[in-house]
Design a protein around this nucleic acid. Structure first.
Lengths: 140, 140
DNA sequence: GAGTTAATTGAAATTTAATCTCAATTTCAG
DNA sequence: CTGAAATTGAGATTAAATTTCAATTAACTC
């Protein structure tokens, strides 16, 4: 499924389907949550697959270009990614106290953004909205 | 004006008002656009003021805590800041082709975000919305 | 299959933003 | 003024991400 997409993507660009790239792809899709490159690298090594740190970073870029993965946000320390398997567009709320990430999606919000783009004659392609605050648990 | 605010802020925390901090403050407010720490540091040196890179970074953090400056966004290469002098809250549209940054503000958008927070029992404190796409000029 | 070639890999070096260290300096309350 | 405590700066350090380059490998051709 995602393999076919990636394979096609590589094919179109004359890139090769290597063992390392497959390892990264597989590991990215084996886990349904946000992840950081370093951590992905660790998981790959632990599960006995192989791919150097350099390959992990390089493959991650390809995955983003292919649309299979998106850069979800940039934290103080590096990027956070997420794959897009049955994972439509959404935005994030981040608790400043415990770090929890809550995903949400609002049609209204999307529509208003479209309106705003129109009224600025801007062709919106993507967006990132990050709301920071305190989650329910931490408020108690 | 911003000096008074900063002075009070420092006072409340038992921090000192140093020449270096004043240099940073002054330079930050002398220019009404987004800026990066490195370039702020350069501007300070060029205008004959003094403050080491370390002090620039340290002061910038204080300015953010005091509310005089906000971290506008995180780019691939570091943070982008902006001061808040007659500069209410707003979000950004960034042209992927020419890099232009368009600021906008929408009451509707703010309201919907509040609704979303409420329905998630999340206490929203701040947010960043960044819409990427192509601006009017570049579309031609 | 074997041969060819361009893409890929990995370990280590490099880059770059940002933070930290610590001796010397400066602020400011009394 | 004086002294205690905060601050400074040059350079070291950290950490994410990228680059280097010789060795390896995928995949196309015959």
């Amino acid at each position: 499924m995602e393999q076919k997409i990636f394979r096609d993507f590589l094919g179109q660009r004359g890139l090769k389907l290597t063992r390392e790239r497959m390892s990264v792809l597989r590991e990215v899709f084996s886990f349904h949550d946000h992840f950081e490159p370093e951590n992905l690298y660790m998981r790959i090594r632990e599960s006995g697959l192989k791919a150097s740190r350099a390959s992990v970073y390089r493959t991650l870029s390809l995955l983003v270009e292919s649309g299979l993965v998106r850069k979800a946000m940039r934290t103080e320390r590096g990027n956070v990614y997420e794959h897009r398997f049955g994972h439509g567009h959404h935005d994030h709320m981040i608790c400043d106290s415990c770090g929890e990430i809550i995903e949400f999606y609002s049609e209204k919000l999307e529509n208003i953004q479209d309106e705003i783009c129109d009224s600025n004659k801007f062709k919106g392609v993507s967006h990132t909205l990050e709301i920071r605050g305190i989650c329910e648990k931490c408020r108690k």
